[in-house]
């Protein structure tokens, strides 16, 4: 029982981080048809900027996180202005955009390495303090990450569901042709999408850095494939699906270590579990868990 609680808790923490990263990837795909292969490196960047501000410059930690989110937004918007906008104008296809995104990822990595070095870093936060909960070991940092990450997920979900710009984003993703002739300001939708995904990337990076305790410049890219698995699991391009897919995948990956599953899947096989889940879901429900098909008329 205490094992279950332990893995379930870990799964929730990991799942929340997956969800936050996945929803950013999902929004970019649904609005801009962009498979953002650089998403992982935006996590790394967010963690390192926060590290630089809070540890090197000794600024307040929360303030550092906020500034790193703003930096994530600014870099995303900068790339939109100099890169993505022009590619779309030249009618670049999804594959071309994907390859350019891969190029961005390959450039971001050495840039991060050049600026911040290759050493392992950790935030100036006590990661040793733990609570005991029904025999499970709950570290304080993970508990805080879980609280803040769930709050972030609720905020994102509410924003997409209720805010006018959130509705405009979903409308544009669903039918771009109609959106652009029915009063929806497409430029604003694109701007909002980049800002949200930039901010979420940094935020997920900080959360991941906190949960790992220490991180290096390869943190984000090692998680990228799991994020994509979460996006596809929850139906490609469905923002709520990505949130749910992320949570679900995190839980499955952690719970697979319980001894009832083949004596417990070793933790370095977690990505295998993620993709096995993905394959199984796609076999039986190709449109993803939250997929639906519109009635043909």
């Amino acid at each position: 029982m205490s094992d279950f609680i332990q893995y379930f808790f870990n799964g929730l923490v990991v799942g929340c981080i997956f969800a936050i990263a996945a929803v950013g990837i999902s929004l970019l795909y649904s609005v801009l048809r962009l498979v953002n292969f650089a998403a992982g490196d935006f996590l790394t960047l967010g963690a390192f900027i926060t590290y630089f501000l809070s540890v090197t410059l000794e600024l307040n930690f929360l303030l550092s996180v906020v500034v790193s989110m703003i930096a994530g937004m600014a870099i995303s918007w900068f790339l939109e202005l100099v890169l993505w906008r022009n590619l779309r104008r030249n009618k670049a296809g999804t594959l071309a955009l994907f390859l350019v995104a891969t190029g961005v990822a390959l450039m971001l990595r050495p840039i991060i390495q050049f600026i911040f070095g290759t050493e392992t870093r950790k935030f100036n936060i006590d990661i040793l303090k733990t609570y005991d909960f029904l025999g499970a070991r709950i570290p304080q940092t993970q508990l805080l990450v879980l609280i803040f990450a769930s709050a972030s997920i609720l905020t994102i979900a509410l924003f997409i569901a209720k805010a006018r710009i959130g509705k405009d984003m979903r409308a544009y993703a669903n039918n771009p042709g109609l959106a652009s002739v029915s009063g929806i300001n497409v430029d604003r939708v694109v701007l909002a999408t980049w800002l949200i995904s930039g901010a979420l990337g940094s935020l997920a990076g900080v959360f991941q850095g906190l949960v790992q305790g220490q991180f290096n410049n390869a943190m984000g890219e090692s998680l990228l494939l799991s994020f994509f698995a979460a996006v596809v699991l929850g139906t490609i391009g469905d923002a709520y699906g990505a949130l749910a897919g992320g949570l679900l995948l995190g839980l499955i990956m952690e719970l697979s270590q319980l001894s009832i599953f083949f004596g417990g899947v070793p933790s370095n096989y977690k990505p295998v579990v993620a993709f096995a889940t993905l394959v199984l879901v796609l076999l039986f429900k190709p449109e993803g868990i939250f997929g639906y098909r519109a009635r043909k008329v």
């Binding site: 409308a171 669903n174 002739v181």
Partner: peptide, 22 residues
């Protein structure tokens, strides 16, 4: 085009004229 509805022009295209997922 997105400002046309602001000046009082509405348009109903022939096909795909709703947002099916919304």
């Amino acid at each position: 085009p997105h400002n046309l509805s602001k000046i009082g022009v509405g348009y109903v295209p022939q096909i795909e004229n709703v947002f099916p997922a919304l």
